[in-house]
Design a protein around this nucleic acid. Sequence first.
RNA 1: UCCUCGGUAGCUCAACGGCAGAGCGGGCGGCUGUUAACCGCUAGGUUGUAGGUUCGAAUCCUACCCGAGGAGCCA
Length: 445
Amino acid sequence: MANIVSIQTIANHVGEEVTIQGWLYAKTGKGKIQFLQVRDGTGIMQAVLFKPNLPPEIFEAGKRITQESAIIVTGTVKQNERAPGVPGGYEIDTTDLQVVQVAEEYPITPKEHGVEFLLENRHLWIRSRLQWAVLRVRATVMRACRDWLDTHGYLEMSTPILTPAAGEGTSTLFEVDYFGDTVYLAQTGQLYNEANIYSFGKVYCFGPTFRAEKSKTRRHMTEFWMLEPEMAYCDLDGLMAMEEEFISYVVQRCLEERASELEVLERDTTMLQNVTPPFPRISYDDAVDRILKIRAETDDPELKELLAIEWGQDFGSPHETELTKQFDRPIFVYGFPTAAKAFYMEPWPNRPEVCKSVDMLAPEGYGEITGGSERISDPNLLLKRIHEENLPEEAFKWYLDLRRYGSVPHSGFGLGIERTVAWICGIHHVRETNPFPRTLGRVYP
RNA sequence: UCCUCGGUAGCUCAACGGCAGAGCGGGCGGCUGUUAACCGCUAGGUUGUAGGUUCGAAUCCUACCCGAGGAGCCA
């Protein structure tokens, strides 16, 4: 066995004899020559077996191995533009082949498959080239998020997943038996982070979050990952300034580090390259006017129906899509109606029917990827809002305390990781951006 | 919860009231540059479940189960 190398660094080993430890992704051949597509987790490359150059038993072993068999390939790395792979253009002229395990007949063939079958075999599907590429981008998105925050003075704080009560009223929560009491799986760490900022200034939490809503769309899962930064001494303008710097960094980092994967996904990165500050800032009032104008100008009766909206209503997916089509980068929509948003959002000065909330909408039809706001800092106002929403005051005692001891203007937002990855990768459904997605009606595997 | 579509070979689908089929994948054989290779041979079926109509049901009817797409919902 020669020097064991990973496929993603193969370009550094041209002319050397190396060993690749991996699995057979695909195979084709023609009599005295066999082409093996070998993947090792970091990439895919071609190994060539040429009968006259090999001991007969090695060549025969190559003919017999099945898709997904575990193999160790040794040979000389050569540049060859005909060789497919990630990265393409390199192949191994094989001198030795060790079969670690011959795989049984593998269910996922190189042909097309239906969604149901693929989800049922998700534990195997993640080995496929497109899924592999998406999940590599996901890891980079998560890494980039943490890197930006860690180098800008934010401290990662763990917030609880088991929570005592319906924090914010309307949403449906998963119930868990807790030694005879009922607790709930967290749908946000925000309220806890509002406590954390008074100890650490700028914080974030990053973890799974849960929703028991019966949403069945390409944008929803029952378990998804959310990143939630929270900042003391930060108003709505400061929040938007931070968000655009942060998101721009994450997108540019993916373009730099995951170019091969985005190429595998055939992602047109033109729109992603535009993701630099500043992002357009559109008020809710303006957004409604724009949507009504688009609606008036369309000849499509179906779209006309979908775009119906009155001031005060939250946007649906069609509204977001049509609005973002007018711009070449993500946009902020701020100042939503108070009635459509959560109780803790700071009212607009002299306009209590509107609050200091902001959503970031991704372009190309991907819609809302962050939702945030400036939080109420006045204890009396917060208590009044809790009463107006008929929330149990005693459950929020600790939360009200935060406004009694050094309260300051503060803001934060939540970023949906799966939606962000779907946007960056240009894929249709958020479920493919999570290795083992949980959706309404599927918790297997 | 509602609407729409679907469930036939390992997979993707056809057959739509009259013999259950094809392509891919698997197996065997051939081929020196393949990119979802190609050529020949071959094995492979409780047509989602239960009931009904009919001389005859994968096909029509009823109920149920499962899945997908969308709506509602979504701090």
